[in-house]
Write a protein that binds this DNA or RNA. Structure first.
Length: 160
DNA sequence: GCCAACGTTGGC
DNA sequence: GCCAACGTTGGC
Protein backbone atom coordinates (compact mmCIF):
# COMPACT_ATOMS: atom_id res chain seq x y z
CA UNK A 1 0.00 0.00 0.00
CA UNK A 2 0.94 3.63 -0.46
CA UNK A 3 3.40 2.88 -3.19
CA UNK A 4 1.98 5.38 -5.58
CA UNK A 5 4.22 8.25 -6.43
CA UNK A 6 1.58 10.31 -8.18
CA UNK A 7 -0.57 12.70 -6.28
CA UNK A 8 -4.10 11.76 -5.29
CA UNK A 9 -7.06 14.03 -4.81
CA UNK A 10 -9.78 13.83 -2.20
CA UNK A 11 -12.85 15.44 -0.80
CA UNK A 12 -13.24 15.66 2.96
CA UNK A 13 -16.59 16.45 4.48
CA UNK A 14 -17.06 18.30 7.70
CA UNK A 15 -20.00 19.94 9.35
CA UNK A 16 -18.94 23.55 9.78
CA UNK A 17 -20.77 23.76 13.10
CA UNK A 18 -18.38 21.12 14.38
CA UNK A 19 -15.24 21.97 12.41
CA UNK A 20 -15.08 24.47 9.55
CA UNK A 21 -12.48 25.71 7.11
CA UNK A 22 -12.06 28.70 9.44
CA UNK A 23 -11.17 26.35 12.28
CA UNK A 24 -8.60 24.66 10.07
CA UNK A 25 -7.16 28.03 9.08
CA UNK A 26 -6.87 28.98 12.72
CA UNK A 27 -5.38 25.65 13.80
CA UNK A 28 -3.20 25.34 10.66
CA UNK A 29 -3.54 21.57 10.85
CA UNK A 30 -5.87 18.94 12.19
CA UNK A 31 -6.02 15.22 12.69
CA UNK A 32 -8.96 13.93 10.70
CA UNK A 33 -10.30 11.88 13.59
CA UNK A 34 -13.74 10.54 14.29
CA UNK A 35 -14.33 8.82 10.94
CA UNK A 36 -16.19 5.59 11.70
CA UNK A 37 -16.89 4.27 8.26
CA UNK A 38 -14.71 1.48 6.91
CA UNK A 39 -14.66 2.67 3.32
CA UNK A 40 -13.62 6.13 4.40
CA UNK A 41 -11.01 4.71 6.76
CA UNK A 42 -9.63 2.48 4.05
CA UNK A 43 -9.11 5.45 1.77
CA UNK A 44 -7.21 7.25 4.51
CA UNK A 45 -5.26 4.23 5.69
CA UNK A 46 -4.43 2.61 2.36
CA UNK A 47 -4.39 5.29 -0.27
CA UNK A 48 -3.74 8.73 1.12
CA UNK A 49 -0.20 9.92 0.61
CA UNK A 50 1.80 12.86 1.86
CA UNK A 51 1.06 15.89 -0.24
CA UNK A 52 -2.28 14.70 -1.54
CA UNK A 53 -4.65 17.61 -2.14
CA UNK A 54 -8.13 17.76 -0.70
CA UNK A 55 -11.26 19.76 -1.11
CA UNK A 56 -12.66 20.82 2.25
CA UNK A 57 -16.41 20.36 1.99
CA UNK A 58 -19.03 21.82 4.29
CA UNK A 59 -22.00 19.52 4.82
CA UNK A 60 -25.27 19.74 6.72
CA UNK A 61 -25.39 23.51 6.65
CA UNK A 62 -27.15 26.40 4.92
CA UNK A 63 -25.03 26.24 1.77
CA UNK A 64 -23.32 22.89 1.45
CA UNK A 65 -20.31 23.00 -0.84
CA UNK A 66 -16.55 23.21 -1.24
CA UNK A 67 -15.14 25.79 1.14
CA UNK A 68 -11.41 25.52 0.55
CA UNK A 69 -8.34 23.39 0.13
CA UNK A 70 -6.11 21.40 2.41
CA UNK A 71 -3.35 18.84 1.99
CA UNK A 72 -2.21 15.68 3.66
CA UNK A 73 0.76 16.31 5.96
CA UNK A 74 0.85 13.09 7.97
CA UNK A 75 -0.27 9.54 7.20
CA UNK A 76 -0.90 6.46 9.34
CA UNK A 77 -2.08 8.52 12.27
CA UNK A 78 -3.77 6.45 14.99
CA UNK A 79 -7.09 8.14 15.68
CA UNK A 80 -6.79 9.00 19.37
CA UNK A 81 -10.54 9.38 19.87
CA UNK A 82 -11.11 5.62 19.60
CA UNK A 83 -9.50 5.18 23.02
CA UNK A 84 -11.17 8.11 24.74
CA UNK A 85 -13.51 6.24 27.05
CA UNK A 86 -16.13 8.89 27.54
CA UNK A 87 -15.85 10.47 24.13
CA UNK A 88 -18.32 10.38 21.30
CA UNK A 89 -15.95 8.32 19.15
CA UNK A 90 -14.86 5.73 21.69
CA UNK A 91 -14.61 2.24 20.22
CA UNK A 92 -14.49 -0.46 22.92
CA UNK A 93 -13.52 -3.09 20.34
CA UNK A 94 -10.36 -1.31 19.30
CA UNK A 95 -7.08 -2.51 20.79
CA UNK A 96 -4.16 -0.23 21.69
CA UNK A 97 -1.72 -2.57 19.96
CA UNK A 98 -4.00 -3.05 16.97
CA UNK A 99 -6.06 0.10 16.49
CA UNK A 100 -9.13 -0.09 14.27
CA UNK A 101 -9.14 3.52 13.19
CA UNK A 102 -6.28 5.05 11.26
CA UNK A 103 -6.51 8.54 9.83
CA UNK A 104 -4.36 11.36 8.49
CA UNK A 105 -3.36 14.86 9.43
CA UNK A 106 -4.32 17.64 7.04
CA UNK A 107 -3.03 21.17 6.87
CA UNK A 108 -4.72 24.35 5.75
CA UNK A 109 -3.97 25.52 2.21
CA UNK A 110 -6.63 27.99 1.19
CA UNK A 111 -10.08 29.27 2.05
CA UNK A 112 -12.18 30.30 -0.92
CA UNK A 113 -13.63 33.79 -0.80
CA UNK A 114 -16.95 32.21 -1.66
CA UNK A 115 -18.01 28.65 -1.15
CA UNK A 116 -18.62 26.61 -4.31
CA UNK A 117 -22.16 25.44 -3.62
CA UNK A 118 -23.21 21.87 -4.18
CA UNK A 119 -26.07 23.15 -6.32
CA UNK A 120 -23.61 24.85 -8.66
CA UNK A 121 -21.47 21.73 -8.98
CA UNK A 122 -24.61 19.75 -9.64
CA UNK A 123 -25.63 22.10 -12.43
CA UNK A 124 -22.44 21.43 -14.41
CA UNK A 125 -22.88 18.49 -16.78
CA UNK A 126 -19.11 18.00 -16.93
CA UNK A 127 -19.19 16.99 -13.28
CA UNK A 128 -22.11 14.61 -13.53
CA UNK A 129 -19.92 11.59 -12.83
CA UNK A 130 -18.34 13.10 -9.75
CA UNK A 131 -18.76 10.82 -6.77
CA UNK A 132 -20.08 13.58 -4.57
CA UNK A 133 -22.97 14.13 -6.93
CA UNK A 134 -24.12 10.53 -7.15
CA UNK A 135 -27.38 9.84 -5.36
CA UNK A 136 -26.87 8.74 -1.81
CA UNK A 137 -23.17 9.49 -1.77
CA UNK A 138 -22.55 9.90 1.93
CA UNK A 139 -18.91 9.01 2.24
CA UNK A 140 -17.13 11.61 4.34
CA UNK A 141 -13.78 10.81 2.73
CA UNK A 142 -13.95 10.20 -0.98
CA UNK A 143 -11.63 10.28 -3.97
CA UNK A 144 -11.79 12.98 -6.60
CA UNK A 145 -10.21 12.44 -9.99
CA UNK A 146 -7.39 14.72 -11.06
CA UNK A 147 -9.58 15.82 -13.95
CA UNK A 148 -12.40 16.83 -11.67
CA UNK A 149 -10.05 18.52 -9.27
CA UNK A 150 -8.30 20.70 -11.81
CA UNK A 151 -11.52 21.38 -13.70
CA UNK A 152 -13.19 22.69 -10.57
CA UNK A 153 -10.18 24.77 -9.62
CA UNK A 154 -9.86 26.29 -13.06
CA UNK A 155 -13.53 26.97 -13.49
CA UNK A 156 -14.41 28.38 -10.13
CA UNK A 157 -11.34 29.71 -8.44
CA UNK A 158 -10.95 32.79 -10.59
CA UNK A 159 -14.37 33.84 -9.36
CA UNK A 160 -14.23 32.83 -5.73
C1' DG B 1 -38.21 18.10 10.36
C1' DC B 2 -38.68 14.84 6.52
C1' DC B 3 -37.04 11.13 4.13
C1' DA B 4 -34.16 8.37 0.93
C1' DA B 5 -30.00 5.95 0.75
C1' DC B 6 -26.76 3.50 2.86
C1' DG B 7 -24.11 1.02 6.67
C1' DT B 8 -24.14 -1.85 10.71
C1' DT B 9 -25.92 -5.13 13.90
C1' DG B 10 -27.54 -9.36 15.46
C1' DG B 11 -30.77 -13.30 15.40
C1' DC B 12 -31.34 -17.36 13.04
C1' DG C 1 -24.33 -15.99 5.29
C1' DC C 2 -28.97 -14.01 4.95
C1' DC C 3 -31.82 -10.30 5.98
C1' DA C 4 -34.80 -7.42 8.87
C1' DA C 5 -34.41 -3.82 12.03
C1' DC C 6 -32.25 -0.04 13.29
C1' DG C 7 -29.11 4.04 13.13
C1' DT C 8 -26.82 7.67 10.51
C1' DT C 9 -25.99 10.90 6.87
C1' DG C 10 -27.09 14.88 4.66
C1' DG C 11 -29.80 17.42 1.14
C1' DC C 12 -33.89 19.73 0.84
Amino acid sequence: MKEKSTKNFWLLKSEPDAFSIDDLQKNKKEIWSGVRNYQARNFMRDQMCLGDECFFYHSSCDVPGIAGLCKVTKVNVVDPTQFEGKGEYFDPKSKIDNPSWICVEVSFVEKFKNIIPLSVLRADPKLSTMRLLQPGSRLSVQPVTEKEFTYIKNKFLPMV
